[in-house]
Design a protein around this nucleic acid. Structure first.
Lengths: 333, 333
DNA sequence: TTTATTTACGTAAACGTTTACGTAAATCAG
DNA sequence: CTGATTTACGTAAACGTTTACGTAAATAAA
């Protein structure tokens, strides 16, 4: 079975390639009978249009790109899930790229997408040092939508969660449950999300007359380091509450407490920004700020497809979805 | 800044498009000085080759497809992570498709990929009823590699784990820790992996003189049903051991025990096939059969790229990677 | 009936590359 | 120094679509 293209189809049908092409795209200028014949034969011959050829001619790739820091992360994988579902509903294809938080990798991806490979980009940015980004080069060419990890220095459509409020609520929750000395484990602190979470934490402390202590806010690193960093924090500062600003930091907290013989929540209460499905059956179950990851993916993709379908979309809107505080044992009495 | 294409580049350089194209691809028939000039100008003008045009002409898409049942699953997201890393190293792009276990969706994806959109496919198949698959149509056209969830009725390259042995080991582990009545929660039972896991379970029972009881092996459904199914199983059959053949079944087991007031591991011991990072901090920590998801992704992608680079690859090999039994509290005394 | 419009299709150019083929100049063999 | 080969580039066709333009026949308007 040789490759069947539109010309062979046309020859078989005694039609021109143009007519076949139009029939396949359900053009109004093709008769119903002809359309039916074409469809029938296309099915019979297993015809599938060559995407490169149609992209080249029509300047539509039927493909979107998703750029995230990591795929194997419950937030991002759920978001991608949402994106894929919407893309599929629109018969679009989804390209995946992971930056591993590397800004240069991110820029390289962006640049490689600027020549028609995709019709739009959804991105959650890498939290490297705030180096130069190539986002400005994208906007005149392609729709670019930020979700969760948005870029501050650019006017664009952004989907975020209410990070400030969530962090404020989380901190307040710890205070209300008796914490006097709450440590904050930083992550993604170069993004607005990270900054807002820090701000919410600090504001909640202030509103409850707790002095913000610099030593209680620590930077984090890779998986190996984090356990040591948290252990060190627990030993030197002896906090009675921990806020893990990103999911990856929750595990080191648990392991650090375990290794140091600290009881959660009796000795230390823990709350984490997290989408872990297993939060409810951890030992003890983990109080979380759960982001609506799936919905964020769907929302971001939904807006992108509105743009691609030339529907009206408010240009530089920032859409804020609410995270949810799920109280469990790790912040209990 | 208008779209810069190879012709504009050529005009700017007083060269022909052919020469520019060859220079960019580092052809041996272009002088070193010219190459340098071209590269320099390409960088300066931010030239990026139009992929559709080059795909159309060269019949290489520089893209692979990954088809999985679900993205938001720790096994698959880790596998995709591995795939993406290898693809990136080869400067390839990765398309993602999720079937939600639907065979027709899977077939539709497959068919849509047969006209040059991708250079190869990595797939972990949907575990729907064993309907007709379009895999045979792929093999003459594209390299197709199965990982984890492989398709039985076709000769192809397959990457699996030692499911039979792992399941045997898991069952034996429960027996050695005192279980007399071990229930098995089925999943993906239409795939070889599922069948092998069942076989390993049954064989281990037999080798330890435990009678296999049909009522102890239950089918599972969606998230909602599973909790009820497991509860029902625990109530009616009163097993003292549970084997969750897929990760998604571990949570319902925990919740079912919790709701019924059964203590793990005192009343019921639980072991699950799972790649959950949180297995170690569950309540109680979960004994798992952990599959090398990341490595499987890397291995599958590695073989695919060997094929794409025309290196010798044993045609219909099945590569078996070992899963690891990680003993934790849920199967303790 | 004549003219204008619509319907249904064909012709051919174009999208931006890659590559087979051709060729002048430079280099080499003898 | 002549002929053969190599080097470095140009010309033009091709990849498989889509679409602007053209046109004959059918229909509608007058």
């Amino acid at each position: 079975m040789d490759k069947v293209n539109i010309k062979k189809l046309a020859a078989e049908l005694n039609l021109s390639a143009a007519t076949v092409s139009r029939a396949l795209r359900d053009s109004h200028e093709i008769g119903a009978a002809t359309k039916a014949r074409v469809m029938e034969m296309a099915r019979k011959m297993n015809y599938v249009a060559n995407p490169s050829a149609s992209n080249l001619r029509s300047h539509k790739s039927k493909t979107i790109a998703v750029i995230v820091p990591e795929i194997a992360n419950s937030f991002f994988s759920q978001a991608i899930n949402g994106i894929e579902e919407i893309a599929r509903a629109h018969n679009y294809h989804v390209l995946i790229y992971q930056t591993h938080e590397n800004v240069e990798t991110e820029n390289a991806f962006i640049r490689s997408l600027l020549s028609g490979r995709v019709d739009g980009i959804l991105i959650s940015i890498a939290s490297g040092a705030n180096g130069d980004r190539d986002f400005k080069d994208v906007l005149p060419v392609l729709p670019l939508i930020f979700f969760d990890r948005v870029y501050e220095d650019i006017e664009a459509i952004k989907i975020t969660t209410n990070d400030y409020q969530s962090s404020y609520t989380a901190t307040k929750h710890l205070i209300e449950n008796g914490c006097k000395k709450i440590a904050y484990l930083k992550g993604i602190d170069h993004t607005p999300a990270g900054k807002n979470r820090i701000a919410g934490y600090i504001e909640a402390l202030k509103d409850n007359d707790i002095l913000f202590e610099d030593g209680l806010m620590i930077n984090t690193g890779d998986e190996q380091e984090n356990l040591e960093l948290v252990k060190n924090l627990l030993i030197t500062q002896k906090p009675d509450g921990l806020i893990a600003s990103i999911e990856d930091l929750a595990l080191p907290c648990y392991y650090a407490c375990r290794e140091l013989g600290l009881k959660i929540p009796a000795d230390v209460k823990i709350i984490s920004f997290s989408n872990l499905k297993t939060a409810g059956i951890l030992n003890p179950s983990l109080t979380t700020i759960a982001q609506p990851a799936f919905e964020m993916g769907k929302t971001a993709a939904g807006i992108l497809f509105k743009i691609l379908n030339r529907k009206d979309v408010e240009p530089n809107q920032t859409l804020v979805l609410d995270s949810e505080l799920v109280v469990r044992e790790s912040t209990g009495q």
